[in-house]
């Protein structure tokens, strides 16, 4: 993955596969504190503690079409490579929260990339899902709620 916006698309696809009907994507660019944060929260079926522990292992996957599961491992690696942090909180029946942070000015931090394409692909493919995209930077806060479309 060359862009963080592709990682976002990938993790949101996980939320959709988990049956989420509401998915929030929060992107915060805080250049002053030198942090870029990406949060993806869903109300999907959630995971057990055991699954959460295994989820960053690339050789763990719940799918049956192949034996590796790279999505979250790749995002975690991207944040690690740029001096960031990675957390997953999940509860069965309630949903999952994924949060990745990055050192904003780290030379290895991937560019955010084409967020617009990611949002269009998601909104068009899943009109039944309520997406709330929030993008905060020094210019202000942009919120796009699919219910307003």
């Amino acid at each position: 993955m060359e862009e963080l916006s592709l990682h976002i698309l990938d993790v949101v696809e996980n939320s959709i596969a988990a049956g989420a009907l509401r998915i929030e994507v929060n992107i915060t660019e805080d250049a002053t504190n030198n942090i870029l944060a990406i949060e993806i929260n869903d109300n999907g079926k959630g995971m057990s503690e055991e699954t959460v522990e295994k989820v960053l292992d690339p050789f763990y996957t719940t799918r049956t079409t192949r034996r590796v599961g790279m999505g979250l491992s790749l995002l975690s690696q991207a944040s690690e490579e740029s001096n960031g942090t990675f957390n997953i909180r999940s509860k069965i029946g309630e949903g999952t929260e994924v949060k990745a942070t990055f050192q904003y000015d780290h030379i290895d931090r991937k560019p955010i990339g084409d967020l617009k394409s990611t949002f269009i692909a998601l909104l068009t493919s899943y009109p039944e899902i309520n997406f709330v995209f929030t993008h905060i930077d020094e210019d202000g806060t942009f919120i796009l709620d699919s219910n307003d479309l």
Partner: peptide
């Protein structure tokens, strides 16, 4: 850095 603008959202 690609930033979303009101125009993009429209």
């Amino acid at each position: 850095m690609a930033k979303l603008s009101i125009k993009d959202l429209e």
